[in-house]
Design a protein around this nucleic acid. Sequence first.
DNA 1: GGGTCAATCGCCCATACGGGGTATTTATGG
DNA 2: CCATAAATACCCCGTATGGGCGATTGACCC
Lengths: 208, 208
Amino acid sequence: MMSETIHIAIVEDDNEIRQTLTLIIDGSRGFSCKYAFPDGESALASVANLPVDVVLMDIDLPGKSGIEVTRQLKQECPEVDFIMLTVKSDDDSIFESLCVGASGYLLKDTSPADLLTHIKEVYEGGAPMSSQIARRIISSFRIINNPLSERETEILKMLSRGMNYKDVAEELFLSPHTVKTHIKNIYSKLHVKNRAEAIYKAIKQKLI
Amino acid sequence: MMSETIHIAIVEDDNEIRQTLTLIIDGSRGFSCKYAFPDGESALASVANLPVDVVLMDIDLPGKSGIEVTRQLKQECPEVDFIMLTVKSDDDSIFESLCVGASGYLLKDTSPADLLTHIKEVYEGGAPMSSQIARRIISSFRIINNPLSERETEILKMLSRGMNYKDVAEELFLSPHTVKTHIKNIYSKLHVKNRAEAIYKAIKQKLI
DNA sequence: GGGTCAATCGCCCATACGGGGTATTTATGG
DNA sequence: CCATAAATACCCCGTATGGGCGATTGACCC
């Protein structure tokens, strides 16, 4: 059985890391790495037109973040798999990476051997990530403390049905001022700035 | 270095499977399994008061489902880790399990040796799951489909991130007028009257 | 009994929003 | 070749929205 070559592109601003990774990958049987970009903009300009299977994407890029770049590239070429490479493993980065379509999330201290294994896993439909990172991901699913009160949840659901201050106030026998205050508190608790974002976040977190 | 014993409880309605698992686990060095329940109700009545580190929870239980039982138990004793054991690996089960607080999701054909390894992983803060299951999880973060035009979908997604006319217009190099027109068309197509309702409907219909 | 929090009500103010229009260009398809 | 759809751009206008404030009343908790 002949083994297929996996074509890889790298987006990484640190010259040394980028070159090292390129050499390691390109020098390994079954792997080819002919494309490396120092920033998101150049990757955006090229990747869609290249025969690439897997992209290794640094998160901390100058200019557009690796997450933003991944979001845009994934729209252009959804068949390409993205593995995020990063030093930081904070929940927001992980969560956002997966939301924009990344298939894996690895820390930069991953050994070269493991890296190749993980690239292969992604290529074959898996989702490589350390056990620790998997744990963080699954905790993001869980609403430990639903930050919203019952009243707030009730009102947010009404907003999602298209109701405005007045509608809600009338249905709940409240002053529109009160409704407005509740909504402002909802925004504050969800860290959003308007209805659209609030509804989106609330649904994604299964609050409504 | 002396190895600590991990205390395990099992919730599983099939007598044979339950007894087999109990014997395997309790007979292994470093593992203790003194508690086994044939249904969710009996587990709910006892687990919170037992010195248990990890619970193996069958999903298909008579009466309350293992997912529901996990949800309730996790509220009473959040420090206990739950591993779902199941024959089915459908997206909904996986997703729901993680939402209610399970730390791992394993298929029943997992070998005894692997099972012990995975219990240890959970106990040490990991989240064991097969690469395939991990992939299903992350794809649940991302879904695509479209009765709206591409441009409209694109704009709706941006709205769901809290952006306004001006923000969208700038990112897409469009006039705010154009963005507004697109949004009006979105409302018309979705038969909604504002953003909140549009976002809600679009998510429910998996348009964004 | 002081602290915290949810729920309620209020004001001011700038602007984002939604509804009503019209219009051009490009691409697609019958 | 003409109809249709999508994408683009602009106008007017009234109001809903969101931010920044403050305030009172009850629960509940330690």
